[in-house]
């Protein structure tokens, strides 16, 4: 554990809880992509199956349980409790275009051919692109609510902070996992355009709207 990873995890946690609380408080999931949330639920499920097979620390286990619960809680709110507020007309990204290639890639580039390892690798590849339906939705509607922008910024910052963590780990403990590092870089690059808009608009008190 180092400061970059801790900040990354806290940023990730903040993003997930921010989204959950926003939907709960406003009684609405307008502007949120249910498809991205489905992908994140798949990501957490396939990655954290190791809750039952490999113990790392209390911290890791608790965080995994929180991420899983919050993710399924978000799905429950979006597709059941506040379903009428779900804006499915604008959530039109075809997620099979992400699910299938990520699955194929996890069989092609993987550290070891075991079920758990392929599932873990799949979760890494899918996470890298899971935000695309949400970004697509923002581009279709041409705007995002300020809290949705904060959510996206926190979620994007998490993997960027993990990149600093991997650089630190490379020098301090020879850690080098190219699968997660390259996927993490791709994931962070996808947010760059949004980061620019967030810094130039939202931080100056303006609503995030596209020209």
């Amino acid at each position: 554990m180092n400061i970059f990873r801790l900040c990354g995890d806290l940023s990730h946690l903040l993003a997930i809880l921010l989204l959950l609380v926003k939907i709960w408080k406003t009684r609405s999931c307008a502007g949120i992509s249910g498809k991205s949330q489905i992908l994140f639920a798949i990501v957490y499920t396939t990655r954290y199956l190791d809750l039952f097979t490999s113990f790392v620390s209390i911290y890791n286990s608790v965080m995994k349980i929180v991420f899983l619960s919050a993710s399924y809680g978000t799905l429950y709110l979006m597709f059941y409790k506040f379903k009428p507020t779900y804006d499915h007309n604008h959530d039109s990204f075809r997620i099979l275009y992400l699910i299938v290639p990520a699955l194929v890639l996890s069989f092609v580039i993987v550290h070891a051919y075991t079920l758990m390892e392929v599932l873990w690798t799949y979760s890494i590849y899918l996470e890298a692109v899971a935000i695309m339906p949400q970004l697509f939705m923002v581009s279709r509607t041409g705007e995002a609510e300020t809290i949705t922008s904060h959510y996206l910024f926190a979620l994007g910052s998490y993997r960027a902070l993990y990149i600093l963590n991997w650089i630190y780990r490379y020098y301090t403990e020879d850690f080098l996992d190219l699968i997660v590092i390259i996927a993490g870089i791709v994931q962070t690059i996808l947010y760059c355009d949004f980061f620019y808009l967030y810094i130039t608009k939202v931080l100056k008190g303006k609503r995030l709207s596209l020209p």
Binding site: D9, H111, Y162, N165, D177
Partner: peptide, 10 residues
Amino acid sequence: GEAILKHDEL
């Protein structure tokens, strides 16, 4: 190797 398969991150 072995170390990499024990995923210790989230």
